[in-house]
């Protein structure tokens, strides 16, 4: 396969899916308690399923129970995530908006795990995937079954109108694949999420992830190589591509995730870019200040 980034995504999802690691069917194995906890939380999700156990977009809780197990293990035992602010989530529809970093989207997986394990009631955060993900065998199915979808505005609006929780990284690859010199500096935000929030009258919950930048510090992003290989980015890190696939294993940093106060915006979703942009800046400022505070309070990257 040509697209290394896709390979990376696949690997991440394979790790995340970790079908073989699932201990729900093997009581007595390590993580049996965690597996039970995850399973209970998923059963509490406020999502209506049809007679075959699927929601309208293809989500299936049984698949989620096994596929989130690795993320849950990473959450509790590898990144040892400390999440705060989950007690102030709005009760119904919401849009989670935060910073993106770390070459591979472990930050998304950790936020989603926090929403499952620590929020009350547990919530399913639905990611909005790139179009080309739909063309990848297996991954496209796994994505649907885990409650995510291809990120078209109308699907996103439909989900929000049905009081779902949507997870957005407005920086996209600009944030994920930046170099370490730019760590924790928010890159340009897209405006689409704000238009959707206005259209569907959805509160925005800003969140800040501290730790993701150090999991795989980017030394460079070879944009010309990326363009040549038709990939969104070609990052160089301390370990990648030096150590090959092993180089994709993140460093065992500690994650801190802060969920901020929900922000309510009003206005015309078809307004000019400038007007939308001002609202987006408010969200960005809120995330940046949480990041600043989180970094100041952090005593160690790893402990």
């Amino acid at each position: 396969m040509l697209y290394l980034n896709k390979v990376a995504e696949l690997a991440a999802s394979a790790i995340q899916s970790g079908m073989s690691l699932s201990s729900s069917s093997f009581p007595g194995l390590p993580f049996a308690d965690l597996s039970r906890e995850l399973s209970d939380k998923i059963d509490q999700l406020p999502i209506e399923l049809n007679e075959y156990g699927y929601d309208p977009w293809g989500f299936n809780p049984d698949v989620l129970k096994t596929s989130m197990m690795t993320a849950a293990i990473l959450y509790r035992h590898y990144f040892r995530v400390v999440s705060v602010g989950l007690d102030r989530l709005p009760p119904r529809r919401m849009m989670l908006v935060g910073n993106h970093a770390g070459q591979i989207a472990f930050d998304g997986a950790m936020v989603a795990t926090a929403m499952l394990l620590e929020a009350s009631p547990p919530r399913l955060s639905r990611g909005m995937g790139e179009y080309w993900l739909a063309t990848l065998p297996w991954l496209n199915v796994l994505m649907d079954r885990m409650g995510h979808s291809i990120g078209t505005p109308s699907t996103c609006a439909e989900m929000l109108n049905r009081d779902e929780c949507v997870l957005v990284f407005p920086e996209g690859v600009r944030g994920m694949n930046k170099v370490y010199a730019d760590a924790y500096q928010l890159q340009d935000f897209g405006l689409g999420f704000m238009r959707l929030a206005l259209e569907t009258n959805t509160p925005i919950v800003p969140f800040a992830v501290v730790g993701s930048e150090e999991q795989a510090p980017g030394i460079a992003n070879l944009e010309s190589v990326a363009a040549m290989l038709n990939m969104p980015a070609f990052p160089i890190t301390l370990t990648w591509p030096l150590l090959g696939p092993l180089g994709m294993v993140p460093l065992p940093v500690r994650y801190h995730i802060e969920f901020g106060q929900a922000m309510h915006f009003e206005g015309d979703h078809n307004d000019e870019d400038d007007a939308i942009s001002r609202k987006v800046e408010e969200v960005k400022d809120s995330i940046q200040s949480m990041l600043r505070r989180g970094l100041a309070e952090r005593t160690s990257i790893f402990l």
């Binding site: 179009y131 739909a134 496209n140 078209t152 109308s154 699907t155």
Partner: peptide, 9 residues
């Protein structure tokens, strides 16, 4: 199409 939204109007 791969980029189809779900539930098109």
């Amino acid at each position: 199409l791969p980029e189809n939204p779900m539930y098109m109007d």
